[in-house]
Design a protein around this nucleic acid. Structure first.
Length: 525
RNA sequence: GCGGGUGUAGCUCAGGGGUAGAGCGCAACCUUGCCAAGGUUGAUGUCGUGAGUUCGAAUCUCAUCACCCGCUCCA
């Protein structure tokens, strides 16, 4: 009955479905919306919880070598000073006045040449003038006339009458100046750049209700990653938990970055949740464990319904990794808006413990009882984006299928094919007809039977087919219907059995109510 | 931050200086015998927000906010 015709997955449809069905809303929508922030609605909250719970179970509870923690979001300035975030987490940026290109100020190569300054320009015939200051850097050996051409181009963009050619402009106040090693000009076209502006990517706040605005000691930050609290508490966990190398500390929690440009729905948000492991090990095991964690993480994605074929592994090349990392894999997913990172598995060496040991002035060394040696452990960090994974789950699950109705007319069935263990609602419960009290009563009984063990949705309105389709749209993997067989109307062999419908195949099977819980639990665990 | 586009019902969108529209969805009732069934009734909008022009603005102008595309950025 169902043809598997894949229509194009568009983010627009997915975003719309998320809002319509209560997965994800924009934060503060009532007041116009807060850029880069999102709220999870009833179904989104369930979905995200299922992901986090499963990650925690697989990462912490079912392993002997990983412990959990839950660190504070407010972070001391000193911590982020040591980690390098305070100095390194802001980029000076400038814009090209001519081409509007944005450049990192610290990446502009120093140049030599003659800077030609102008104090403005005018157009006599149309009585137009401007006193904007502009300058062009002319490389050694090149004619100053080229500067005038560039300057006219610059002033030309402000002409109210676009029919006037920039060539007719009179330039004012030309002055030349020899420059060496300047970074104030765009190497591409010689145009003057804006003054570098700092983009502080961390959210700063003040601790203490009456903190003096100028008290530097009151400054704290919302953490830009969960990792730092793990490094800072590493010694306490070690001393309180009787663990030996190698071992990991895992954490799920919110982090905050003042992204310049949030984009792609929840993909790049200013407030986001991370699922991170810092796995401490002997230096010689770092590279091997990085590969092992990559495999473990890929298996995880498969287990939650993101197939290996949709994942790309990027072995981040030399020069593109963070300076302290000796090996980094990015696990990327084929989002509808492009292949984008879900998780990074980074071998960070002993950089983090090293900087905190130095910054705090306290030893973070590990004493190995067997070899009787002291060492600073190395770290492998699998760091997954929780919201990004939720988004990947939704994108992966989204499907539109062309089905034929009873009259043979084609229609589109929208279905979220979540893995049952991720699905926000596990089972729909429907009395076939709501005007038959015996059916309704029996359906309520089934609801009470399942509800302590899983999320269920009881629905008695509208025709049965419509109820099935409603559940398809929110990704409910199973639906049970209580019909006249269930209440024994068609003979004793059907009594206390229900039809169980599969979301993906739309096929039904008859199952005893007493077997239902076991059947479902086996599939959603 | 720059350039382009968009903003009207829960969703998708039409309209357009003079009483706010459609389809779908939603709610109630009737009907119901397994895949978006039919009927009846109903609710919902400061036309993104603010200011200006106007006798009158959802419509024109400006500003602002948000979203989309491209650039930029992503330690």
């Amino acid at each position: 009955m169902a043809q598997n015709v894949k229509t194009e997955k568009s983010m627009e449809k997915i975003v719309s479905l998320c809002k319509r069905k209560g997965f994800i809303f924009q934060a503060g929508e009532l007041y116009g919306g807060l850029n880069g922030c999102w709220d999870y609605g009833p179904l989104g909250a369930e979905l995200k919880r299922n992901l986090k719970d499963y990650w925690w179970r697989k990462t912490v509870q079912e392993r002997d070598d990983v412990l959990g923690m839950d660190g504070a979001i407010l972070t001391m300035k000193q911590v982020l000073k040591s980690s390098g975030h305070l100095d390194g987490f802001s980029d000076p940026m400038c814009d090209c006045l001519l081409s509007k290109a944005r450049l990192r100020a610290d990446q502009i190569p120093p140049q030599n040449g003659t800077a030609v300054w102008y104090s403005g320009a005018s157009h006599g015939a149309s009585d137009w003038s401007t006193d904007k200051v502009f300058a062009v850097l002319v490389p050694p050996g090149k004619d100053v006339e080229s500067a005038r051409k560039t300057a006219r181009q610059f002033y030309g963009q402000f002409l109210p009458d676009k029919r006037i050619s920039p060539k007719e402009l009179e330039l004012a106040g030309e002055k030349s100046e020899e420059m060496t090693g300047t970074t104030r000009f765009n190497p591409e076209n010689g145009s003057l750049l804006t003054e570098p502006r700092e983009f502080n990517l961390m959210f700063q706040t003040r601790v203490g209700a009456s903190a003096d605005e100028n008290d530097p000691n009151a400054i704290a930050f919302l953490r830009p990653e969960t990792a730092q609290s793990i490094f800072v508490q590493y010694k306490n966990v070690l001393d309180s938990s009787r663990v030996k190398l190698p071992f990991g500390i895992a954490q799920i929690g919110k982090s905050f970055r003042n992204e310049i440009n949030p984009r792609n729905f929840t993909f790049r948000s200013r407030e986001f949740e991370q699922m991170e492991i810092e796995y401490f090990c002997r230096p010689e095991d770092g590279l091997r464990l990085t590969d092992e964690w990559l495999e473990a993480r890929l298996r995880f994605y498969e287990e939650i319904g993101i197939p290996r074929t949709k994942l790309h592994i990027l072995d981040v090349p030399d020069g593109e990794r963070a300076f302290y990392s000796r090996k980094t894999y990015d696990i990327e997913y084929e989002f509808p808006f492009g292949v984008q990172e879900l998780e990074g598995v980074a071998y960070r060496t002993d950089y983090d413990l090293g900087v905190h040991q130095k910054g705090a002035g306290k030893s973070l060394e590990y004493f190995d009882e067997e070899t009787k040696e002291k060492l600073l452990p190395h770290v492998v960090e699998p760091s997954a984006g929780c919201d990004r994974t939720v988004l990947a789950l939704i994108c992966e699950a989204y499907d539109e299928e062309v089905v034929k109705d009873e009259k043979g007319k084609e229609e589109v069935r929208t279905v979220l094919r979540f893995h049952p263990r991720m699905a926000p609602v596990k089972c729909g419960i429907f009395p076939l007809l709501k005007n038959k009290p015996e059916l309704v009563a029996k359906a309520r009984e089934v609801q009470k039977l399942l509800q302590p063990f899983m999320t269920v949705f009881y629905d008695e309105t509208a025709a049965i087919g419509r109820r099935y389709r409603r559940q398809d749209e929110i990704g409910t993997p199973f639906g049970v219907t209580i019909d006249f067989d269930t209440i024994g109307e068609n003979g004793p062999e059907g009594r206390d059995t229900v039809t169980l419908r599969d979301r993906d195949t739309m096929e039904q099977q008859r199952i005893k109510i007493e077997d239902l819980l076991h059947f479902l639990l086996e599939r959603i665990h």
